[in-house]
């Protein structure tokens, strides 16, 4: 990745963060914290990694993405809109009556959504089905899934990980947004999920742990996935992230899990993003 490419990604992510804040504030609800922690992964995935076509969102041989932590829908909607799946102006109608942007992703409402999610633990199972299905159909595609670390408490996740390893789904790339917080507090206090690397390895996955806000490390993690694809094991990317990343008063604050910023708070946050934007541009 060149310096310029990295700069572009950083600017793209700032735009996404602004979308997340504006859309959830306009909705008066939603999940900014876990959307902001997942932003950099999604920015990279949709700009550099995944093979999808906004003009043909149902193309058979496209790669698939499943947002198993479906509450980060505002981040996914932002990246899909900015890649041309639907107008960016529509993001402001998130969660409103008659809008196709549901509170959690819905396959039958929104272009570019490959699976309806929101009930935690379920998306990864569907991703396993897609990865297995692509083999049955002889398609050479990749399936990406993003989970949360709070979601690791769902038993279904581990049923699915066992399935992925058992059926040698090397075409499955599972990312975990390890922001360390869930609704009721620190994940380590509510229901500890660590050591995630050892748990996934014990189930038969190839695991890499990265800083989920560093584009070089994200790029490296996907290289690791493509290298692993020569073998038979699914790949897991554990991303250490910061909940509420990019907004000083939201970072690492559990209260911003499922609460939208009030209009004045939103403006304050966007002013911070403006500074970040200028810093990236070096002006």
């Amino acid at each position: 990745m060149t310096h310029e490419e990295k700069k572009e990604l950083e600017l793209f992510a700032v735009d996404m963060r602004e979308d997340i804040l504006r859309s959830t504030t306009a909705a008066g609800s939603g999940h900014p914290g876990g959307s902001l922690s997942a932003t950099d992964y999604l920015a990279y995935l949709y700009n550099k990694e995944i093979n999808v076509d906004p003009k043909n969102p149902k193309k058979t041989d496209r790669d698939r993405f499943v947002l198993s932590k479906g509450h980060a829908a505002p981040a996914l909607y932002s990246v899909l809109a900015r890649k041309g799946f639907f107008p960016v102006e529509d993001l402001i109608n998130l969660r409103k009556k008659n809008c196709y942007l549901q509170g959690h992703p819905s396959i039958n409402h929104t272009p570019g959504i490959d699976m309806s999610t929101g009930s935690l633990g379920q998306g990864i199972s569907a991703a396993c089905g897609m990865a297995k299905g692509s083999k049955v159909l002889g398609l050479n595609i990749n399936v990406y899934a993003l989970l949360g670390d709070g979601e690791m408490a769902e038993g279904e996740v581990w049923e699915a990980v066992a399935f992925a390893a058992h059926y040698k789904l090397e075409n499955l790339c599972i990312a975990v947004d390890v922001n360390g917080l869930q609704i009721d507090g620190k994940t380590s206090d509510v229901m500890n999920s660590e050591p995630l690397d050892k748990r996934f390895e014990a189930f038969g996955c190839k695991v890499i742990r990265i800083n989920g806000h560093n584009f070089d490390e994200i790029e490296n993690a996907f290289k690791f996935f493509h290298e692993n694809k020569k073998g038979t094991q699914p790949t897991v990317i554990l991303m250490n992230t910061i909940k509420g990343k990019g907004v000083s008063f939201m970072e690492n604050e559990v209260g911003w899990h499922g609460k939208a910023a009030k209009p004045a708070e939103c403006e304050k946050a966007i002013a911070e993003l403006e500074i970040a934007r200028k810093n990236i541009l070096g002006c």
Binding site: V66, A126, C128, G129, S134, V136, E156
Partner: peptide
Amino acid sequence: PDRFFNCGIAEQNMIGVAAGLATMGLIP
């Protein structure tokens, strides 16, 4: 055998896997 998947004693995942297979145009 190539179109039969034993999911083990894990019914919740089995339903989700079937859902994913169905999104691919297969008939689970």
